[in-house]
Amino acid sequence: MTDAGPDDMRELDDLPALLERYATLRDTLQGLEAERDALAAQIKAALLSGQDAETDLYRATLKVSRRVEYPLDRFREAFGDAAALEVASVDRKKAEALAKAGDLDPERLRDLAVVREVQALVLQPKTI
């Protein structure tokens, strides 16, 4: 058999051992991801309150992205059931395409738009 990875990897014909190792790695990664997410939430809250966070290697910043959404109830009131049904299972691109095609009033659609901000924690290397 070919080398499947690290020296401690089991032979491929020992499927229960491979499954056990896989489960261990999956559980470890899930635990690490949960811890990372909790730490990121704490750091984001600190940054939003005006604090700075940095180490010798990294500086933490928040990257803000915006997402436009149209509340379904308001969209339905403005454009009716048929238009709401047509765009309800798709994203804003479908509604904007209908407006561009002339099927919806672009100005009314723009008035309905709700912009949501999402902050993502970004580590910027300080060594460059």
Rank of each mutant, 00 (worst) to 15 (best):
R67Y: 03
A83R: 06
K100E: 14
R110I: 01
D105R: 06
A84C: 12
R74T: 08
E107M: 07
D81G: 10
A88C: 07
R67C: 00
R108F: 07
R92W: 05
A83W: 03
F75S: 03
D73C: 05
V90H: 15
L98T: 04
D105E: 09
K100R: 15
R110W: 01
L72E: 07
A82F: 12
D103H: 11
D73A: 15
A99R: 04
E86K: 08
K93C: 00
P106C: 11
A83H: 04
V68C: 02
D81F: 14
L85S: 13
D91E: 13
F79C: 06
V87G: 03
R92P: 00
R66F: 00
R66T: 00
S89F: 14
E96P: 00
P71F: 10
K94W: 06
L104D: 01
Y70R: 00
L85W: 06
L85T: 07
L109G: 04
S89P: 03
A82M: 09
R66Q: 05
E96C: 01
L104I: 04
A95R: 02
A99Y: 01
E107G: 01
F79E: 04
P106A: 15
Y70I: 00
A101H: 05
A99H: 01
E77D: 15
D103A: 15
K93Q: 12
F79M: 10
E96G: 00
A83N: 02
S89A: 15
R76S: 07
E86N: 04
G80E: 11
A83I: 05
A78W: 03
E77L: 14
A78K: 10
A97N: 10
R110K: 10
L109V: 04
G102D: 06
R67Q: 10
V87L: 08
K100N: 13
V90F: 11
E77R: 12
K93G: 04
A82Y: 08
L104T: 03
F79I: 11
K94T: 13
R108D: 10
D91M: 11
A78F: 06
L104W: 01
E77F: 06
D81K: 15
K100A: 15
L98V: 07
G80D: 09
E96A: 01
Y70L: 07
E96I: 02
R110V: 00
R67S: 05
E86A: 12
P71W: 11
R66P: 00
D81A: 14
K93L: 11
V87E: 04
L85G: 14
A82D: 14
K93D: 04
E77P: 02
E69T: 09
A82S: 13
K94N: 03
P106D: 08
V90E: 13
Y70S: 00
P106Q: 09
R76V: 01
